[in-house]
Design a protein around this nucleic acid. Structure first.
Lengths: 332, 332
DNA sequence: AAACAAAATGTAAACGTTAACATTTGTGCT
DNA sequence: AGCACAAATGTTAACGTTTACATTTTGTTT
């Protein structure tokens, strides 16, 4: 009754009285096959609902049309646009995306890399779980050994030999704090990621530099966290509950800023009481008439740059990409 | 100098003087292999940085550990959580995610399905580009034929024989409009998706019903769109610019609501002038002290339900899933 | 120590495709 | 008509695994 099973190239070959090789050719290099044969083959292929078996193809041809994407968190709006950019560009070159959300867990990151390797991905875009100097993921040697092209984004794995696309971290701290100081604020709470995160460190350096340039005395309080919303909210909440009253809170990423805003509300205050500054744009804030001033990077551009570097490296193993920095700008 | 190439099961076998079969067994069914042999094999495997070749494995075993996810738009916050849920659950059962963003294009959707089929995915979670009755994607017969488990989410493909997880559409319209009417509003602008979208149709039916129940005369204006932000903004902008002044705007999804809010601002008005109601929660609105009243569904739950249905169906082909509806609730 | 079962390993083949090379068929030219 | 060459198709083998079945080794029982 029902057609047997998935049709293969062999089934097609039988039907048209040709070899599988000819069928394969018809499908992959149509110009190498007589017009009529081609037509017949394509017709039969359609008839049988033929779908090529990517596994067989990739196994034999030893290359895959897969790109791996390892990202720390899918529901971080910062990454959403990046993924979008990567997905769009990859598609154009007929690559598909194998997506891994490590949820901040090194073990999951490890597993993700293994899985990607087992799928012989053509390349990997990697946003690592932690960018502190003590993070030495076990997969690193494996990754280097296979010589799979890898491009890092946002977070830099200190010892990894892979180029990456990063943000203006020092600048963002400096510009942000400079702005706040100019506005007359003097007492600050900075809420960052992990204390040892190089991104946080670098942003803080920029911040301290801006403070140094202020002729008047200033006060800087710093809370560390993990770049996510809930912990930032709790930390700021506790801080405020203890009676401290900074002029401004500087959130070192979107989620931290959101958490801080929550805490301010929770304490019954508003931005009239405490100014808020963010690194990267808090989505929709402007729609609610409360744009949060920020130093913002074009994240779509970040994704675009990364995937293009990767694709180029895949095509041309000679190509030796170097780190790129996505410039940011003040949005007040 | 450098180790040759990727190590295979054969390399390991040679090193330990055993057959590939034993090695394969050691890796997959350790209990079937003598303890010492197992130990040696694992040791050598580590030493050689062995990574199994998923293509070879899947080709031979005729099953893949891949799940396909086709979604209309990655940067829609509504889907972000869904993807998160799916990713988490899939990982637990050792499935990886092949992700496709169709960007609203039927052609891309077609290609996505083909690619997924070629990767022999174990199952597909599908959020289709359009849910209107005239949408007859060409891939449908192919999909049915292969008997791959498919679970739809959010948007229902009218003629498809696949179960799905959907929202309370009629209810959301009814409850939303009922609320607005109770609040004393009488003149409404509803901004929906495509005119023929069943979701929009159903939500509008709920809305009309609520209006029917209002003892006083009411006015209902309707604008159609495509569930995205920019077109909604433009449409509402034009509408307002023409001088119309509804008491309230009812946005039939998050992006539409966001677009409407933009338009209201653009026209120099605020929510004091025009009330806004949304289907599903506008992210971060509460953080800005401007929560948008809405009829909200738990999207994480939606993703969870869908992936669990799919996983169950994959394990047990007998299982015949039926449509699930995720209940929503008013959040005022 | 024989007999037999269980445990451990092996042999052969196959999954669906493509690469490399070989052969046949067709075409234009003198 | 015969030759050279291009076009079209074919043969063989391999990619790295696993499945099904076969054989060998080990252990237990009496």
């Amino acid at each position: 009754m029902t057609k047997p099973d998935k049709a293969t190239i062999t089934d097609i070959a039988k039907r048209v009285n040709m070899t599988t090789v000819t069928v394969s050719r018809a499908l992959n290099r149509p110009e190498k096959v007589k017009k009529e044969t081609l037509a017949r083959i394509l017709e039969v292929a359609r008839e049988l609902n033929y779908v090529p078996n990517a596994f067989a193809r990739n196994l034999k041809s030893r290359e895959s049309r897969l790109i791996g994407l390892i990202t720390a968190s899918l529901d971080n709006p910062f990454y959403a646009k990046i993924i979008k950019a990567i997905s769009r560009e990859a598609k154009k070159k007929d690559y598909s995306l194998l997506l891994f959300d490590t949820d901040g867990s090194p073990e999951l990151e490890e597993r993700a890399v293994d899985t990607l390797l087992s799928y012989q991905v053509a390349g990997i875009i990697l946003s690592v779980v932690s960018d502190d100097d003590d993070y030495h993921p076990a997969y690193l040697p494996k990754l280097e050994l296979t010589r799979i092209p890898v491009i890092q984004i946002d977070r830099k794995l200190a010892e990894a030999p892979f180029a990456g696309v990063y943000l203006e971290n020092w600048e963002s701290g400096y510009q942000g704090m400079h702005t706040l100081v100019e506005q007359g604020h003097r007492h600050f709470l900075v809420v960052g990621g992990p204390e040892k995160s190089n991104i946080t460190i670098s942003r803080l350096e920029g911040i301290r530099r801006a403070l140094d340039e202020c002729p008047e005395p200033t006060q800087l309080d710093v809370l560390y966290g993990d770049y996510t919303q809930a912990p930032a909210r709790e930390a700021v909440n506790t801080y405020l509950a203890s009676g401290k009253r900074p002029d401004a809170i500087f959130g070192l990423n979107i989620l931290i800023t959101l958490g801080s805003l929550e805490a301010i509300r929770a304490q019954g205050m508003s931005r009239d009481d405490i100014e808020v500054f963010s690194i990267d744009q808090v989505p929709y804030a402007d729609i609610f008439g409360q744009p949060v001033p920020c130093f913002s990077h074009n994240t779509y551009q970040l994704g675009l740059t990364a995937i293009n570097m990767l694709l180029r490296k895949i095509d041309d193993p000679q190509y030796d990409p170097t780190d790129e920095i996505i410039k940011g700008e003040l949005i007040l």
